[in-house]
């Protein structure tokens, strides 16, 4: 199935932010905005909620801490207790470094893997990019065209009056 999009191309982040605000105020739904770098303040104007990835990181980290402590206490305290350097079997202070490292490892990997999954990032040879310049120096605002419903001229005017340097149409296979 192909979907049709109107692409407003911008070349300045401040113009883009103002445009997003005005386009949304005009009642137009923005499908997605593409930029070559993270634009500060874009989350607010697009209404993107704060990411919950830090929560994922926290719980993965918590898992790492508990796993590391359980592993060390069980292995040296219960499974095969040995006296090492006259210390108690469960020598907690000596277990801290490994616990810390596993906490960091689990938090980092858990969060990053979740990030790849939710953002649908995976190695693939084919990529659908709306406008290739959006990874170079242009900011691209994509608006989905609903056949018969979208007034193309009005949309074109709206984008251009808000500073778009180009307005293109593109069909994308979804």
């Amino acid at each position: 199935m192909t979907k049709k999009f109107v692409l407003g191309i911008y070349d300045d982040e401040d113009v883009l932010l103002q445009a997003i605000e005005n386009v949304r105020a005009a009642g137009t739904n923005i499908y997605e905005v593409f930029s070559p770098y993270p634009v500060h303040g874009i989350d607010d104007v697009l209404g993107i909620k704060r990411s919950r990835l830090p929560i994922v990181a926290f719980f993965c980290g918590l898992f790492g801490t508990s796993f590391a402590l359980w592993m060390q206490i069980w292995m040296l305290g219960f499974d095969w207790p040995m006296i090492i350097g006259g210390k108690p079997h469960i020598a907690l202070p000596a277990f801290i470094p490994v616990t810390f490292e596993l906490t960091v490892l689990c938090a980092a990997f858990g969060m990053v893997i979740t990030f790849f999954i939710v953002t649908k990032l995976k190695p693939s040879f084919k990529v659908n990019v709306f406008d290739k310049r959006s990874t170079d120096d242009k900011f691209v605002m994509a608006i989905e065209v609903k056949e018969g419903k979208t007034d193309m001229t009005a949309l074109n005017d709206l984008l251009r009056s808000n500073g778009a340097i180009e307005v293109n149409e593109k069909e994308v296979i979804k």
Binding site: F34, P38, V104, V112, F115, F116, K122, F125, V127
Partner: peptide, 28 residues
């Protein structure tokens, strides 16, 4: 294309990217 993991630079992806970078920095 393979190395870029299909990155498109969408606002949502950038938002998460920045969060991930910040938390990774905090962990690192």
């Amino acid at each position: 294309a393979f190395l870029s993991f299909g990155w498109t630079g969408s606002a949502k992806a950038w938002s998460r990217y920045e969060t991930v970078s910040l938390i990774l920095a905090g962990l690192a």
